[in-house]
Design a protein around this nucleic acid. Sequence first.
RNA 1: GUGGGCGUAGCUCAGUUGGUUAGAGCACCAGGUUGUGGCCCUGGGGGUCAUGGGUUCAACUCCCAUCGCUCACCCCA
Length: 431
Amino acid sequence: MIKAITGTKDILPSEISKWQYLEKLLRDTFQLFNYKEIRTPIFEETALFARGIGEETDIVSKEMYTFKDRSETSITLRPENTAGVVRSFIEQSLGAQQSLNKLYYIGPMFRQERPQAGRLRQFHQFGAEALGSTSPLLDAEMIQVAYRILKNLGLKNLVVKINSLGIPEVRENYKNVLRDFLNDKKNNLSEESRKRFDTNILRIFDSKIEVDQQIMKDAPLLIDHLDEQSKNDFDVVKSFLTKVGIPFEVDPALVRGLDYYTKTTFEIVSGSVGSQSALCGGGRYDLLVQELGGKFTPGIGFAAGMERILLACENEKSLNLSPDSIDVYLIRVDSKSDEQLELDLKPELDLAVAKLASMLRRENLICDYDYLNRSVKAQMREANKYNAKFVVFVGGDEFKNGELNLKNLSNGEQQLIKIDDFEKLKSIIKS
RNA sequence: GUGGGCGUAGCUCAGUUGGUUAGAGCACCAGGUUGUGGCCCUGGGGGUCAUGGGUUCAACUCCCAUCGCUCACCCCA
C-alpha cells in the first residue's frame, strides 16, 4: 500500500469544517485591518531562501526540500513565506505602486524535520507582511491582528512575548559583550550551547537545560544595550499594547531563529499544544528587502502555524462548530400494492427524484438523495446521518395522485404537496 | 540527526505463565409488518495479528532486524 509521506497528513472531510472556519476568520480579520491577500508559488529558486533566511540557519542548512528540475535549476519547496512575498514585492515593484503594502497569505510550507506534536513536514501557515514603514505602530498592529485571531478562536491559554533585537550594529556589539561574559563560563555550558557559542550565541538564552539557564540568569541582556531608536520604538509598541488591552511580557531571551529580524520580535505561545508551543512568531526585518536586491524598504511580519492553532483549539475545546446539515433528502418509495406497476414506474421515479433535486439546488437548498437503490429505511437512516431538516418521499400512491410527501424530521410531521406546487414545497423547506 | 514509547478489523482497544477455527465496542451492510429515521434487537461482511528472519512440538504472545507511527531533544510556526 502506498502511504502518505512521513510528516504529511490528509485533511479529511470529517475535519475540514474547522479548517474552513479558521480560514474564514483569517480572511475576515485581515480584511478588517485592510490587508490584501497575496499568493506566491510554493517553490522558489533555492538561492532566495539561502539569502533571505540565512545560510547558517538549520532551516536552510538541513531542513529544506531541495531538488533540481530538468533544467538543472536548484529549486526549493518554500519553508516559510516571507522570502517569497519579499521576492514578489521586489520583482513586481509593489513598492512603486503603493508606499505601504499590507499583505497576508495562507498556505502550505515544507520543512524536513522529525515530526512530533504540532510539527509536520508539510504544514500550513498564515501570516502577514507590512512593507514600507518603520512605524512601531505597525509592529503593534501585527501583534494585535495575530492576538485577535487567536482570541476569536476562543483560545485562553495564551502568552504574548515581545523583545527587541535592535539594529544590526548594536546586536553585533552586544554579541561581543555576551561573548566576553560567557568566555570563562563556556566550559560549564551544555554541549549544545557550546556549539551555539560559535554559530548563534543569542540562542543560548533559549536553552532548556538547567545548567545553561543558571549561567544565563546573570547574563547581560540585549534589551539593556539597545540604541535610542530601537528603545523608543519598543516603548511605543509596549504602550500601544497596553492601551488596547493586550497583555504581554517582555522576554529578553526571545531570539528569533531567522537571520532577517531587527528591532521588534514577538511570539504568542500556548500552554495547550505540547512542546511546540509557539503558535505564532514574527518581527521586524528592515533590511531584508535590500538584502534580496530591492530598494531599502522596512518591513514587519509574522507567521502562525495552523495545525498548532487547531491543535490548541482541540485541546481547549474552544471551537463550537455546529454540525453539518442538509436542507432536504429525497427518498424514493416503493408502491404498497402493485409490484409490476412498481417496476414499470421505477425509471420514471428515478428521473422525478433527480429532477426535483436539481430544482431544489437551483433554489440554493442543500439537497441529496440515494444513488444505491436502497430501502426506504436505509434512505431514512442516511437522511439522519446527514442531519437533513426535511425528507421528501417520492413515489407510491401519492406519486400516482400527483403528490409528494414532505416530512419534517425534527417533529415528524408530514404533509402532502402537489408535484406542480414547487413554490409551496420550497417555501416550507426554506422557512 | 539523537533518544523513549508503540504497531491485533475502517476507528478505539481486549487477547491470561507461548497451546486448537483471533475477540469486543463503535462504524458499515441487511433484516425486525415487502412505504418512514434518530433508541432497541438479530444477523452479516471485514484481520497474511506491520514486514522478514530466529527459538520451540507449538508464536499475536519470546528474541533479532527492517519499516511505520508517536512523544521528546534539536530547530522552529
